[in-house]
Design a protein around this nucleic acid. Structure first.
Lengths: 215, 215
DNA sequence: CTCCATCAGTACCGTACGGTACGGTTCGCC
DNA sequence: GGCGAACCGTACCGTACGGTACTGATGGAG
């Protein structure tokens, strides 16, 4: 980090050059296509038309490459904030349903599944920080969005809950149930993807039945 | 299966001898302690005081060993059936809370986490049947227990739901939320384990608020 | 033009693992 | 007692991968 960074960086202040971003993109593609077994340093170098030496110079070692992949993928996700505009019951429900659909679509995405599988596979190793990293960049982010939404709903007198964390946990559980695990285990998600909309609405209705303020 | 099996088998008619069961036990221990990286054929042979040749004779190859481990572990879990005795609101709630606590304890168990991590790590491989196997032996089993319990509750007029699968999904989601994933990612479950009881009760109360029959 | 930094491509090394083969031993059966 | 099956321990082989070193090409700075 000494001196002026002359190479062009990616949009986010991630310290990555365009080239390095392209390499991570190829690495993610390899991971999605063939799982962790396919993610070899030689394979990444070949797919990205770069040398292994450059990989080690840029990312340190294989773990550094994996961490960079997670950070890079997370940097592409942007969480839109909910405007604290006038919120009525219908619009709160609409926001919640939109959140639920987004959540399901993110969790069912190829890259998300591959990265979660990768981090879970490494979780047994003691020093592996991949799980923590994924949790920080993934769950915390989407959790904050949901938390903000719930807070706005409570401020508007539409929701009633004591512990926001508990309310968020209930919402998450009602929306996702065990689908995430089943997809991680390899179950074909095509049957699920059709029903995202209906599933999200049902879950939100149940959530509102639990935490919606009875008028 | 030709002729009479002379060697003593394990209790379940799994076709495994005691010796093979002991070997699988050691293999599970290795997996729990060190993750998949520690689960090498040589390591299992050393830990179980058997030869690699015997491993390959008994289980075919490494995948066969992994499948046998999952089947063996599943065979140790016995699902107790709910007697269809007279069920009132309090006893239904008690049964549901017991189920929820069991579910949390199973999912948080060392062996369960290790096997789920293993199957998830292999899920990217095309031909891997481990995920399906784990789903069949694990989820389906506990799902049937829950389904039976819910059905009894409905028959007794204490629960009202249309689709049993949906009701079970809601119960599962309320109980587990994202805790399973977080534990799979390596989060320390010690903080969670203290609150199993309270968590189970809260989840069951929410479930009953949704699906309990208002009298 | 010259110098220097960067990087692609490749060759190389050590290691670790899956799977196989073999010698020696135990144990049940005839 | 002798035979044969099962099996332990170990040595062995091929392969694949992580990581390093080297060579040559490119391109920008002075």
């Amino acid at each position: 980090m000494q001196g002026v960074q002359t190479a062009k960086e990616t949009g986010a202040g991630s310290g990555l050059t365009e080239r390095q971003g392209a390499v991570l993109e190829q690495a993610l593609r390899l991971l999605v296509d063939g799982g962790e077994r396919a993610l070899t340093t030689a394979g990444v170098a070949r797919a990205a038309n770069c040398s292994k030496e450059s990989l080690y110079k840029w990312f340190g070692d294989r773990d550094g490459l994996l961490s960079a992949m997670i950070a890079y993928q997370a940097s592409k996700v942007r969480t839109l904030d909910v405007s604290a505009e006038a919120l009525d019951e219908a619009s709160l429900r609409a926001h919640l349903v939109a959140f639920a659909k987004d959540l399901l679509e993110v969790l069912a995405g190829d890259v998300s599944l591959a990265l979660n599988r990768l981090a879970i596979g490494q979780a047994s190793r003691e020093g592996s920080k991949l799980g923590r990293l994924l949790e920080e960049r993934g769950r915390r982010q989407i959790g904050r969005r949901a938390g903000a939404l719930l807070e706005v709903g409570r401020k508007a007198g539409l929701l009633a809950f004591g512990d926001p964390e508990e309310a968020y946990g209930a919402l998450y559980g009602l929306v996702v149930s065990d689908w995430h695990l089943r997809m991680l285990l390899g179950e074909d998600p095509s049957g699920l993807k059709k029903n995202f909309g209906r599933r999200a609405e049902r879950a939100v209705d149940a959530f509102l039945a639990l935490y919606g303020r009875k008028e």
